[in-house]
C-alpha cells in the first residue's frame, strides 16, 4: 500500500483516534464502528464489520478508567478493518493476521497516548505562570494544541501501521498453512474467552448475574429450537 493509498485511511484513523479521549467521546472509536467504517472506505463494509465484531469482543476487556493505560481502539479498529477488507475473499489467514495487526496497533497507539499526555504536561509546565494568572489565551492555546496533537497522533499511528502491516499481512496470507475453518475457530475461541472473561470481571458483583446470563443462553437455545 502506497502513502497516497494509506492517506484516507490515516485521516479516518486520526478522526476516530481523536474520539477515544479528546473529542467527542461518542464511541465512534469503538472497533465495531471504526473497523466497519474502514471496511466501507475500502468498499467492503461487511468485512470491516466482521473484524470490528471480533475486536469489539476483545475490547470489552479494556475499560478506559481515568489515568489507567489501555490500548487505543480507534486507530487499531481502522487498521484491522482496512487490512482485512483489502484481502481477497476467502483467504484463511486474512482474519487472524488482520486481528493480530490491529492488536499490535492498539498496543502501540495506547503508548502514543501516554507520550501525548506527557507532551501536554510539558507544555502546561511552560505556560503554567500565564495560566495561574488567568490568561485565557494561554489556556485556549494549551487546550487546542492538545487536541491538534491528538489528531496528529492518530494519523501518524494509523499511517505507520498501514505502511508496515499492509505488506506484512499480504505476505502472511500468501504463506498461510492452516486450514480455513481452524483459522476462524482460533479467532473465535480467543474472542469468546476474552469477552466472557471481561464480562465476568465487570459484572461478577451484580446480584444473580449468572442467572441472567443463563437466562439469555436459554432464550438463545429457545430461539434456535423454534427457528
Amino acid at each position: 500500500m502506497s502513502f497516497m493509498e494509506a492517506l484516507p485511511i490515516a485521516l479516518l484513523g486520526a478522526v476516530l483516534g481523536l474520539d477515544v479521549v479528546t473529542f467527542p467521546q461518542a464511541m465512534i472509536a469503538r472497533p465495531i464502528v471504526s473497523s466497519t467504517l474502514a471496511g466501507a472506505f475500502i468498499g467492503h463494509s461487511e468485512s470491516g464489520l466482521l473484524v470490528g465484531v471480533v475486536l469489539e469482543l476483545i475490547a470489552l476487556d479494556t475499560l478506559p478508567f481515568g489515568a489507567s493505560r489501555y490500548p487505543e481502539w480507534g486507530s487499531a479498529g481502522v487498521v484491522g478493518g482496512a487490512l482485512f477488507a483489502s484481502q481477497a475473499k476467502g483467504m484463511p489467514g486474512a482474519l487472524p493476521a488482520s486481528i493480530l495487526a490491529a492488536l499490535l496497533t492498539a498496543m502501540i497507539s495506547g503508548s502514543s497516548m501516554v507520550i501525548l499526555r506527557r507532551l501536554i504536561a510539558g507544555r502546561l509546565e511552560r505556560s503554567r505562570a500565564l495560566i495561574e494568572e488567568g490568561s485565557r489565551d494561554a489556556l485556549l492555546s494549551l487546550h487546542l494544541s492538545g487536541m491538534t496533537f491528538d489528531l496528529l497522533r492518530g494519523a501518524i499511528v494509523t499511517m505507520a501501521a498501514m505502511l508496515i502491516f499492509s505488506p506484512l499481512v499480504r505476505a502472511i496470507v500468501a504463506t498461510w498453512g492452516s486450514e480455513s475453518e481452524y483459522s476462524r475457530a482460533v479467532v473465535v475461541v480467543v474472542a469468546a474467552m476474552v469477552a466472557g472473561g471481561a464480562l465476568w470481571k465487570v459484572f461478577h458483583s451484580v446480584r444473580h448475574v449468572i442467572w441472567f446470563f443463563l437466562g439469555g443462553v436459554g432464550i438463545y437455545l429457545g430461539l434456535r429450537a423454534f427457528a
Partner: peptide, 22 residues
C-alpha cells in the same frame, strides 16, 4: 443484569456468525 441477559443471547449468535464455514 440487562447486560448479562443480552450477553447470553448475543455471544453465541455473534460468534456463530463469525465462525462461518467452521
Amino acid at each position: 443484569s440487562a447486560t448479562a441477559l443480552v450477553a447470553g443471547v448475543a455471544l453465541p449468535i455473534a460468534l456463530q456468525r463469525v465462525v462461518g464455514p467452521g
